[in-house]
């Protein structure tokens, strides 16, 4: 039997259906906790605060300002608020809490008392965090984008559907997803390795802030570097 055939047989023998069900069970519990707990209100604030400002801007400055100017403002908000602060701190909160939260609330053992592979549990938890962060920040970015161009009426619609607008939106959303995956996996790993993941998180924040002024080879070791490439 060739190596490939053996691998195929091994893969076919795995209880994929059971694992899928177990991941779904972990996901359901975590999504409820992440979206509906009062503790998570601040993440909503982080994700939707710019939407409020842009809505105010749409109301107050409805007869002034240019689309070009607003595009630059939106780019600034995305790069400096969402990418460097909102998604960073949001993912820090969501992903470090996935396991550390269970440890703090002394409820992790309930997962360990179920016939779940540790890898399946980890995957389920990570996907739960990812769905939460992508949904909240993706919606935040989408709503910010929509509110920014909606006030321009037909010109805004034209910019989105016939101009570069749609590509710009997709790029923002793509970078948001990548940022959630990048920061999420880093923070999940830190929360499993360190009892106090905030200290390494501060170092990550410092690193992400100062790498742009470092040589390009060093810049490649930061998440922001790759996100900028995508942007």
């Amino acid at each position: 039997m060739t190596r490939l055939a053996r691998l195929r047989t091994t893969l076919a023998e795995q209880p994929w259906e059971l694992w899928t069900r177990q991941i779904a069970a972990v996901l359901r519990m975590d999504l409820r906790k992440n979206f509906l707990s009062r503790r998570g209100i601040w993440i909503y604030l982080l994700a939707f605060a710019p939407v409020v400002i842009i809505t105010l801007h749409a109301i107050i400055d409805r007869h002034s300002g240019s689309m070009r100017e607003d595009t630059e403002v939106l780019a600034g908000i995305f790069q400096f608020f969402y990418l460097r602060l909102g998604i960073f701190f949001g993912c820090l909160g969501i992903f470090t809490w996935l396991f550390r939260g269970e440890i703090i609330e002394k409820s992790l053992h309930y997962y360990f008392l179920a016939p779940v592979k540790r890898e399946v549990l980890l995957l389920g938890k990570f996907v739960g965090g990812l769905v939460t962060s992508v949904t909240l920040f993706g919606l935040g970015v989408f709503a910010s984008f929509a509110m920014m161009y909606l006030r321009f009426g037909d010109a805004g619609q034209y910019y989105i559907f016939n101009g570069p607008g749609m590509g710009q939106l997709l790029a923002y959303l793509g970078v948001t997803v990548l940022a959630c995956i990048g920061y999420g996996s880093v923070f999940l790993a830190l929360s499993l390795l360190f009892k106090n993941p905030v200290i390494p998180a501060i170092l990550v924040l410092g690193w992400e802030t100062f790498t742009p002024v470092l040589p390009s080879l060093v810049q490649r070791f930061s998440i922001t570097y790759y996100l900028k490439q995508r942007n």
């Binding site: 400002i53 403002v73 608020f81």
Partner: peptide
């Protein structure tokens, strides 16, 4: 600790967003 950091760092970011958007 994270909340404290967020308070001191996200506040300026949010303030800057207000300044840029609302002029």
């Amino acid at each position: 600790s994270a909340l404290m950091l967020a308070f001191f760092f996200v506040g300026p970011g949010f303030g800057a967003a207000i300044n840029a958007t609302l002029g």
